[in-house]
Design a protein around this nucleic acid. Structure first.
Lengths: 140, 140
DNA sequence: CTATTAATTAGACGAAGTCTATTTACGTAT
DNA sequence: ATACGTAAATAGACTTCGTCTAATTAATAG
């Protein structure tokens, strides 16, 4: 989680990234990985589907399954800020988000710019998955 | 926004709460207000629709319009934590959220239990609407 | 090669929310 | 009160995002 991953350009780099996260590298997964890991970015499943299908075809179900799997394995992060769709964030480093509610834009905020100095105590049978900080803004 | 509102039980109390927030108190809005302000709680639009329609009928469109209006006027807060639906939070005091990703439960965290000691500097033409802190957890 | 399991697929389906065109209620002036 | 103009509510079609199912294809182990 605190590992600084490279942004792989080549097919081989994507393959080894998948393997690192215990994901069997199939043709479709490599393709999807190649799209989202080409740079740190936020994409919705629909955007991934559209991007991937510019060349050959990957089914809708596979795109959704694959992004869900990537998220489960910690390879991407689901960002829930827009009520109408989930964003998948390929930036693996710890960070927070700035959301422009007027335009739907989503930006990263490096974690050193936000400091949470106090969190509530939780019962011991509860595991924290994530602490999301979302700064919702709009332009004047 | 920092006003500690009562949780109105009577129709008259709901009416004056609506007026305070510049909302024309119609029959349907009062009904919806009565449901969500009976106690501090999180409800989805569908839940509000179901609750309201146990007695007489309010249309789906009106429930969605009304909750949207309430949110716009600052009378309720939209909580976006579950990718499948928006929650409307009738707790008007400043607070954060604890979300159980396994069950979908949503709990309030009083703002004194979370301290954000640093926020990024933002361009002057940008207005902060809200800083949401969501602690995503699951049980063992 | 064969069996077993994992992954992919098309397309039907579902849920949440939006939109449109019409009707109803409401406020104000007469 | 009545008439007029605007705001609100309505039914139901529609859209979008996402899930599910049942069948096919690919991968892997023996």
């Amino acid at each position: 989680m605190d590992e600084k991953a490279e942004f792989p350009k080549s097919r081989a780099e994507v393959v080894s990234l998948l393997k690192e996260y215990d994901i069997t590298p199939t043709h479709q997964r490599i393709k999807i990985g190649h799209v989202i890991f080409s740079q740190p970015q936020h994409m919705s499943a629909e955007q991934v589907l559209a991007a991937v299908n510019q060349s050959d075809e990957v089914s809708k179900a596979t795109v959704y399954n694959t992004l869900g799997l990537f998220a489960k394995q910690g390879l991407v992060r689901e960002v829930i800020v827009d009520p109408s769709k989930v964003f998948y964030d390929s930036n693996l480093s710890k960070h927070h988000h700035l959301y422009y509610s007027d335009t739907g834009e989503l930006e990263d905020i490096a974690s050193e710019h936000v400091k949470i100095s106090k969190l509530p105590e939780l019962p011991s049978d509860i595991q924290i998955e994530d602490v999301d900080v979302i700064i919702r803004v709009h332009r004047n």
